[in-house]
């Protein structure tokens, strides 16, 4: 029984693949010719007679689809320019049509608005944006002229706001493709404007299609928590001359991106002096001099503790920096 069902599924798939070979259907302008004939006898040899021939010319149906091609939300960082969304515009009608393309980055339902920068056509047909190779789209100057079943990849480039966006925020941009012959309700007729002068009719798509592409913000937030512990020379915790202040800074990365080359600087407070040899990173002592290790005191910037933490992500361990000063 299971095998039977499987066979049936394969048969259906086979049918589907056959019908999708020529999705747009019979080309506009095709003449469908029909005539019947009859044979009969009436007391003699067989007689053949023909009907008149009726010719029906296939009109052009205007249909288009736009699909967003990126496999997932396109990851962008705040302030990124020319972030690319990939779309595919397909002429699903049965005639050749030019299509006007319109991008829009002010779309409802998202958390930030990208700024539309430009639209490019995939000149080399590789489905990926190639700066310097692909052609800048200029409305009504180089509208893609697509044959029936033909398609073009279109790249929408937008700029991402540098502020006011948080990790995980979504920003939408749309691409619309509209037939230059016309758009409207299905069934709207544009007389004699189809291929070869046949009538053009708006199909189910309305002659226009739109798709939405999505950007997602990937940003990392580095936060520093600084604590001070005072101990005086009498075993108490009063901040008096000669007391030691132990500063402890914990550095944490949150969000989805990578903070590249994180450097923590902390100015030695006025009326205090750094206690030589007390700088530690993650409980490991660092020399005070600017040398091979991650930190120094006064070497990079006078009167300042500088510690380089490298790249941090949310997966990184909390970084702890400790040093002592004495109150003058």
């Amino acid at each position: 029984m299971r095998r039977l069902i499987l066979t049936a599924t394969i048969a259906i798939l086979a049918c589907l693949s056959v019908s999708s070979v020529y999705a747009a259907g019979t080309p506009a302008g095709t003449v469908i010719s029909n005539a019947a004939k009859a044979t009969y006898t009436s007391g003699g040899p067989t007689v053949t007679t023909n009907s008149n021939t009726v010719n029906v010319i296939v009109a052009e149906v205007i249909n288009v689809t736009v699909t967003w091609q990126d496999a997932a939300n396109v990851t962008v960082s705040p302030g990124q320019t020319n972030a690319v969304l990939i779309f595919k515009v397909t002429n699903t009608g049965n005639g050749t049509e030019p299509f006007l393309l319109t991008g829009n980055a002010t779309v409802a339902g998202d958390q930030f608005d990208p700024t539309l920068a430009s639209i490019y056509l995939d000149t080399n047909g590789n489905g990926a944006y190639d700066s310097g190779t692909d052609t800048l789209y200029v409305p009504n100057v180089n509208n893609p002229n697509l044959a029936a079943d033909g398609f073009v990849n279109v790249f929408v480039l937008a700029n991402i706001p540098s502020s006011g966006v948080l990790d995980g925020n979504l920003g939408f941009a749309t691409l619309t493709a509209a037939s230059k012959t016309g758009t409207g309700a299905a069934g709207t007729i544009f007389a004699l404007q189809g291929d070869g002068g046949v009538d053009a009719i708006i199909g189910a798509s309305g002659g226009s299609a739109i798709a939405t592409g999505k950007y997602v913000i990937s940003s990392v937030l580095v936060s520093i928590n600084k604590a001070a512990t005072v101990s005086d020379v009498y075993g108490g915790t009063r901040a008096i001359t000669g007391s030691t202040i132990r500063y402890s800074m914990t550095v944490t990365a949150t969000g989805s991106g990578t903070a590249v080359g994180v450097v923590i600087t902390d100015v030695i407070p006025a009326y205090t002096a750094y206690t030589a040899g007390t700088l530690k990173l993650n409980a490991v002592a660092l020399t005070d001099n600017k040398d091979g290790d991650a930190g120094d005191v006064g070497g990079t910037t006078a009167g300042t503790v500088t510690v380089s933490l490298g790249n941090l992500t949310s997966a990184s361990a909390v970084q702890t920096i400790v040093f002592n000063v004495t109150i003058n």
């Binding site: 095709t30 010719s33 029909n34 005539a35 019947a36 009859a38 044979t39 006898t41 067989t46 296939v58």
Partner: peptide, 14 residues
């Protein structure tokens, strides 16, 4: 009377 009458219509192309 006409006998053995057969009307044939080829399926039009497309």
């Amino acid at each position: 009377p006409a006998t053995d009458v057969v009307i044939t219509n080829p399926m039009p192309e497309h």
